[in-house]
Design a protein around this nucleic acid. Structure first.
Lengths: 204, 204
DNA sequence: CTTTTCATATGATAGTTATCATATCAAAAA
DNA sequence: TTTTTGATATGATAACTATCATATGAAAAG
């Protein structure tokens, strides 16, 4: 009998994580399948046993490989105040100037949204669902899950959360392209504004 | 004697404009030199007589092909109020939901900043200078030019202008990737916020 | 009209890419 | 231990890419 079934699953997950890193670093178009497999410690041979195409792999990355969403989803506070504090800390770290290095290769929203906009329907759909999940996580409270939060929030509050996310993504995209003092200061200003926005959002 | 000297200059400009369109549409990595030349109505042969490499062409696009900067630079108001009104109109159009289509292929900041972040030093420098020019245009008044405006503005005002630009770019990047109602509403909210920011900026 | 000169076209090259066919080989069942 | 099975590696292909060398042809000067 062949190798254990979980082994393949674990390999698939390793390829997925490697793809996220390579795509964010080089961009979707410039990232070769061979490079992704090499990053995963494999060779190209097995790739098509795990994913039907490079673009399908991209969609999968966009659907699942978002550290920010994972961190937000991991909040587990008892009190509302603790929840708010955790959310603030996660967003603050995400926009911290020192975090830019890791973020430059670490945030799929900042690194891959422009590439996702050029993708096929599957890619676009995956990105859209992930963005919606991010918005839901921003609106969520300890008492509600993502879907509930999205369903219950007014269109206005949803738009404010989406605006917050877009502001943060915009600053990360821009800050990744330049590194001078102007952008450093602007990033600090944006960070403060985003934290203020999340306070207003979670207080309502 | 050969063709007129301006002829070459005009061809170069045509290639540059074509490159902007193709790069924005397909992304830098996916855009082939042949495709750029075809868009310009030429074949690949003459390319290297105009630009030393594809990446140099990219830097040139980032340095010069920004419709927003051109529109801001074209303001010619007598009064301060007229200047402010023109600035508002340009930014408002830029972030108008209906303009998204044209903008998706029209705004180099939104379409190419992520690619610029992955470029070499020349590319990064060109992007940085263009962004700085954009910030200068936002800070400028009828009485000052871009450099003066940048030199005279406090670090805080410069940061606010950069934040405004990053907010707008972020919303365009995000809105280009998704098209649902959530993003439409968020875009409207961001548009209003940006217009408010520019009012505050120009009033001080 | 002839000649010259350079912008552009055509043709070529070396490297890369996504994808597929086939070979190998580790492990689990016998 | 032997066999089997499927995950991965190796090898191959056809297409594409950046870049360069050479050919062409149009126009301006004579």
């Amino acid at each position: 009998m062949p190798l254990s079934a979980e082994h393949k699953e674990r390999t698939r997950a390793r390829i997925l994580a490697a793809a996220g890193r390579v795509f964010r670093r080089q961009g979707y178009a410039a990232a070769a399948v061979d490079a992704v497999m090499a990053e995963a410690g494999l060779t190209r041979g097995g790739f098509y046993a795990h994913f039907p195409s490079k673009e399908a792999l991209f969609a999968e990355v966009l659907a699942h490989d978002h550290g920010l969403i994972r961190m937000l989803a991991a909040r587990r506070a008892r009190s509302s105040a603790g929840w708010r504090r955790q959310t603030r800390r996660i967003l603050g770290d995400w926009l911290a100037p020192d975090h830019l290095g890791p973020v430059r290769e670490g945030c799929s929203f900042a690194a891959l949204t422009a590439d996702a906009a050029r993708g096929g329907p599957e890619v676009r759909r995956a990105w859209g669902l992930a963005f919606e999940r991010l918005v839901g996580e921003l609106l969520r409270t300890p008492a509600t899950d993502v879907d509930q939060a999205l369903a219950m929030a007014s269109s206005e509050r949803r738009a404010l959360a989406a605006q917050l996310a877009a502001n943060a993504i915009g600053m990360l995209v821009v800050a990744a392209a330049g590194e001078d003092g102007l952008l450093r200061t602007a990033q600090a200003v944006t960070r403060a504004a985003v934290l203020e926005q999340i306070d207003r959002l979670l207080a309502s």
